[in-house]
Design a protein around this nucleic acid. Structure first.
Lengths: 212, 212
DNA sequence: GTCTATATGCCGATAGAC
DNA sequence: GTCTATCGGCATATAGAC
């Protein structure tokens, strides 16, 4: 089987995911990851050139699923962009109530490797947040918002800002404060610059296995 | 000399500050801290019961000076609260241009110890952010804003959200996006709920040795 | 209060067998 | 592709002398 998709490799990434997200990347040794995956350290080093390589694979594996989970929170066409985006912040607050919630894996990785700008984990984290911001921009533009790019940036700031405050205070209600701020920003732009009307309705969605 | 204020103890905290902020707390061993302070490890353990104790002292030492640096960025009575608060975000962007900038030490500590809610570093970080939020509330209330507490929370979210994005993307311009968002939130509240007029003028201020 | 020396264990990474 | 065994180094923390 190809080295990139072997069962063992996937088991190692899954084990790394649980340990790195749960305890922190630098706090977990490769011994623990190998043991959790049920293989020896030597096998881990057959599949990954280094711990840094494993870290990058762990984050890359989270990239699209994380974005997809947020996208599924706000089904297209069932409500206005304002309502759909508000739902994202509300869902963040609910997710943060789970004791296993540890904030955003990408933000935490950037914090852990703040002194290593070229670290592979940093590249994956930056790419993920760019994708997220681009998606926000699409959602806003599709609903007729002007200055969608600038608004999308502000929403990213609010989202990670809420994550940061919740992480620091262990207080999920900061997500609602961020939701209010987002509503204000969108409402304000809506009234002055939005170019077309929106649809109406409600939206559903449940948190997946991942929490970040 | 009292153990809490001895020169050696202060040298150890200063050494820890440079290393922990520069490279991350878990990335730095006590050996490195002791060597940077010019003492042996045994002396470090005379002054601090454990590395966790040293970590807490490192953050506690940053608490009030960090808040004070922000407070000095916006001298009281020289401008409206809107202008003074905008200046904070602009200054964050300037500080982040320094290659030694590594984001917020409290946020990064919370990220590193996300799995240890009772860790002394977490307590210091939470306390610091509470103080910061309370100060924002004072500034807003003193300028006649209604809902100052809710607005102060939103500003904290924007501030740490900007720090997070800058850290992830190495892109200080996110501070300006946050500044615009803050202006919008304040302007909007200003127009609908502010209770009194404000003064006018400009403000000065320079970044200190600390960057967090 | 500071030193030398050490205890004990985990760190990331590798050699070589099968 | 996975194993056993191990390398050299660094982790936090401590014993005991002065």
């Amino acid at each position: 089987m190809a080295r990139d998709s072997s069962k063992t490799r996937r088991r190692l990434i899954a084990a790394a995911d649980g340990l790195f997200y749960g305890q922190g990347i630098r706090a977990v040794g490769v011994d623990a990851v190998a043991e959790a995956a049920g293989v020896t350290k030597r096998t881990l080093y057959y599949h990954f050139a280094s711990k840094d390589d494993l870290i990058a694979a762990y984050l890359a594996e989270r990239d699209l699923p994380t974005l997809g989970r947020y996208q599924r929170m706000i089904p297209e066409g069932e409500a206005s962009a304002e309502q759909r985006i508000r739902r994202i912040f509300e869902q963040l607050g609910k997710n943060a109530e789970d004791p296993r919630w540890r904030g955003c894996s990408f933000l935490r990785a950037a914090a852990e490797f703040a002194n290593l700008p070229g670290h592979p984990a940093r590249l994956v984290a930056s790419r993920h947040k760019r994708r997220f911001e681009a998606w926000f921009e699409e959602v806003l533009a599709a609903d007729g918002f002007g200055e969608a790019a600038a608004l999308a940036r502000q929403l990213m700031i609010l989202l990670d800002g809420a994550v940061a405050q919740i992480l620091i205070h262990r207080e999920p209600s900061y997500a609602l404060a961020a939701a209010d701020a987002a509503s204000t920003l969108l409402e304000r732009t809506n009234k002055s610059k939005k170019r077309s009307a929106h649809r109406r309705g409600g939206a559903g969605g449940l948190p997946g296995a991942h929490l970040g």
